[in-house]
Design a protein around this nucleic acid. Structure first.
Lengths: 162, 162
DNA sequence: GTCCCTATACTCGGATAGCAAGTGTCCGAGTATAGGCGG
DNA sequence: CCGCCTATACTCGGACACTTGCTATCCGAGTATAGGGAC
């Protein structure tokens, strides 16, 4: 089970968008440049975030992307589901209804016990992601990233932000 | 993010192996037949379970597979990791170290905040799977599966078990 | 000097190839069994 | 009648094609900007 690569990029992009001035917008190319990833693919993932209403796009020259709502109201689950999809990781194919022990469909009222257990674990995973927001990540940034990196980022901002 | 198909089959297979007499062994072909799935692919997954020490194989004629230890000591996580692998769903590529804001490797002592959050969610998922055993599934089987299906399974057992 | 218009350059958005991993399959090595033979 | 031996048939185990979905890319539609011209 592997989460899509774009989830990592989407999360980093959201964090970066959360620390720029609220009125400014950062184009996909710049976001890709900052993270050292292919611009075209980063753009694709940003489109997914846009469709989900997490970021909003500003068209035209000097346009780009910015957060559609405060970072504290964007959960990690929002970002993950926007890029990776909402369906649970475990998909029940009801194989219990096949083979020699199969009985009439009427008999299968209770949900498959195995699927139930797997979906419960899935829900735990989602609950944890739902409990944390992009704002929390930004708040914890001070102790996690070195002052030098902060300074270089600030310099980069002055270059790309008008 | 999609869990491998084989996980579902492996779990169902373990449940079935848990309800047959302890000394008996069920070949891969029979397990596949019971669940209505391709025999060759079911065999592949059983091999993974065998490598992980969850089931043990009995070679030769009248051979097959049986649980390597009591069902109560086989967690769902054991089965999932045996088939789907043990690496976490989120893979951190350290993209923070790339691009114009990158600094010396020495500065990145703290783990990436985003990866930390994702891995914590992953651990919640694993903890939930670790808390439930194949034995628990078997215990809950009585209320989940209809008496008719139980009867048909018993009949099938009499055909395939010597 | 101010306002309006036009051309530009930049942006996003969706449609299009490439590749890796999961899915599905096959055949060979090994072993417990069943039958036959000899004592 | 009993024990041993051999041939058999069945099992698992690993190596080989194929398909789906993620990865990566490109080009067209749309818009705010910047510059120039008219008043």
């Amino acid at each position: 089970m592997r989460l899509a690569q774009g989830v990592e990029w989407g999360l980093h992009a959201c964090v970066l968008l959360a620390v720029i001035p609220e009125s400014a917008a950062l184009p996909a190319g710049r976001l890709a440049e900052y993270h050292g990833v292919p611009a075209a693919y980063m753009a694709k993932n940003l489109q997914a975030l846009s469709r989900a209403g997490i970021v909003e796009s500003v068209p035209g020259q000097k346009g780009g992307y910015r957060l559609a709502r405060p970072a504290g109201e964007i959960t990690l689950l929002d970002v993950v589901e926007a890029i990776d999809g909402t369906e649970p990781s475990f998909r029940c194919n009801e194989i219990r209804r096949r083979g020699p022990a199969a009985v009439a469909a009427r008999e299968y009222r209770a949900v498959c016990t195995i699927a139930e257990a797997m979906w419960r674990a899935d829900e735990r995973w989602r609950a944890e992601l739902r409990a944390q927001t992009v704002g929390d990540l930004v708040a914890g940034l001070g102790r996690a990233v070195s002052p030098k990196a902060v300074a270089k980022t600030a310099t980069w901002f002055q270059e790309v932000l008008p």
